[in-house]
Design a protein around this nucleic acid. Structure first.
Lengths: 338, 338
DNA sequence: CTGAAAGCGCTTACAG
DNA sequence: CTGAAAGCGCTTACAG
């Protein structure tokens, strides 16, 4: 097919040297192999002249390395993920690594396929925002000595690096901010997902209730069918819990969807109901009134993820001791919770 | 290194067959090669049992195909790009192709590096949202017989497939909508970029002025320094052009940034100034008042891009006749322009 | 200082 | 119906 590309062989032939010599020079091992500076220079000049670039497929086949990292997110269309993806891409790029993203859309099946495709493609490391049911596959990756960092949520049964935030505390503080403001009936709108970050956020809410003795009002929208169910479920939740004077949303899409519904119902924020959302973004900032939100330290997370992965990659093997890091989040207070 | 993976050789040895036979069966050529059904079944069963998956690197090395498409966007953090990326990913996935994204952030240098890295990685096709200065590189890709689709903007000097929208007409209609509403001093806020889509949008604005005899008010924010310059430039533009009663924004980030500034200046929309934005998104929809916006047909664009690329890939060579498709956009009218 | 040769895991003419 | 063998473009012991 496209066999017009120049190869090491072509170079060695043209210059009357061996493939070995060319390869060493190309890989910066000229000095180490004590190749004369003249030869090295000549080769480099020629390489530049003819515009040779190595075939990474061939290189990967023999070295087992591709300088590529697979990044599995829930949905690249979600600003939280596209922002962190953007940051991770940049960090990785600066270290000579490329990122391949893909979205699971929360589906275990798709996630499994993606992991397998990344493995087949020979990625060096994995950054995974796991769906449910991924435990076995990830355990196996670890057994095969592959570098993995879990992100946003983890799998309790799997020993692996994890970088995220302290969700329990973040939600506790968000709710406490509402209670401190005199709210008496604080509701929590979340999903029925069993993902760790969701469990922790709910736990933060419950801790506040326990401490303050306030009553619980929880709406769990079915994770698999949020688009369809949010509106009817949220509307009847509001109707059936008329005492609610504040709501904490466990995700940004729940918040944004509900804010639109509240607007249509002419519920005044914060006069009738105060609101706090999870994951800050432009919509929440520009909403009228501005929406108080828990902000995750994206830049720091991106850095920790990449550093950890590159370290493992450099060590060349999976470390026994895994990192489980929960960064503090920050509550950005805006008019919606005053 | 990680040489624990099973290979075709292992299978052929275990089953007492040749690599050839295994390879044919694995590639669905069993019937074509008239391999007995029993043998084929036995091989498939064994493959499944031991969990063999082919090494795509090796396969790619010999076939020259990787079933991967490189997608170069301006910024994956921009909702316009993350949305279309999401759609393209899905379409490609359904056809057995994987997408590798990366962002140029508008930098020619980064774009060149990305194209080269994609080439080195052996992607089968390229979807490129080009920056300036990419003409030579893309011409060369075409000469090397690689499949390319340009998207969002094109390069006038390069013959290549292009899928986008009719920007001139879209902006013309957006402005006409304002003029029809009785606006007398319609401003255009754009960048100084020479990218085709920006030129066309400006041209649409100018056509309306010409038709109606209205006066021109154009602000061009420096593309390379929008973050720093938007606020001061926009504020003095408003101050120096007090007659303005409507503004068309040429991009979503210009619109969103300016809306925030207008809010801080207590400019009432649409009472004092009507507003139309380009590229719809959640922020514009939920802004108070809702912002009228030009919506691009993302789904249709994604489909056209992938279909075109796959067709070229199937034909196995670059078609002489290139497609240059400009889809119609749709104006979504909201309160900001009433 | 440099080269000949094996091998990474596949595919595919060619031969029977 | 099936196999032996060459080759894709690299890297890397090994030898001198």
């Amino acid at each position: 097919m496209k066999r017009n590309r120049i190869s090491i062989k072509d170079i060695s032939k043209a210059l009357g040297l061996s493939n070995t010599t060319i390869s060493f020079i190309l890989n910066g091992k000229a000095e180490e192999m004590r190749i004369s500076a003249q030869v090295a220079e000549k080769v480099l000049a020629y390489v530049k002249e003819v515009g040779y670039t190595p075939n990474y497929l061939a290189r990967g086949l023999v070295t087992g390395k591709t300088n590529t990292i697979g990044f599995i997110v829930e949905s690249i269309g979600n600003p939280f993920f596209s922002q962190i993806a953007s940051l991770i891409e940049e960090q990785a790029y600066n270290s000579g690594y490329k990122i391949i993203y893909s979205s699971t859309n929360g589906k275990q099946e798709k996630a499994l396929e993606l992991i397998r495709m990344f493995r087949d493609r020979g990625v060096d490391g994995y950054i995974i925002c796991p769906t449910d049911g991924l435990a076995e596959e990830i355990k196996q990756l670890r057994e095969e000595n592959r570098s993995i960092v879990l992100f946003d949520r983890y799998l309790p049964s799997v020993v692996a690096h994890y970088i995220g935030i302290d969700n329990e505390r973040a939600m506790y503080e968000a709710c406490k901010h509402l209670a401190d403001g005199g709210k008496k009936n604080i509701a929590m709108v979340t999903t029925d997902s069993e993902q760790t970050q969701m469990i922790s956020r709910l736990a933060g809410y419950q801790r506040l209730l326990k401490e303050t003795g306030l009553q619980s009002h929880v709406l769990q929208v079915p994770y698999d069918d949020i688009k369809q169910r949010l509106q009817p479920d949220f509307e009847s939740f509001i109707k059936n819990n008329p005492t609610i004077d504040a709501i904490c949303f466990a995700t940004n899409y729940l918040a944004i969807g509900s804010l639109e519904i509240m607007r249509n119902l002419h519920i005044s924020i914060p006069d009738q109901i105060s609101v706090v959302a999870f994951d800050d973004n432009e919509v929440l900032r520009l909403f009228q009134p501005g929406i108080t939100a828990v902000e995750q330290p994206l830049e720091e997370m991106a850095k920790l993820i990449i550093d950890r992965l590159l370290l493992d990659l450099k060590l060349g093997k999976v470390t026994e001791k895994t990192v489980h890091k929960e960064l503090p989040a920050r509550l950005i207070i805006r008019a919606s919770s005053l």
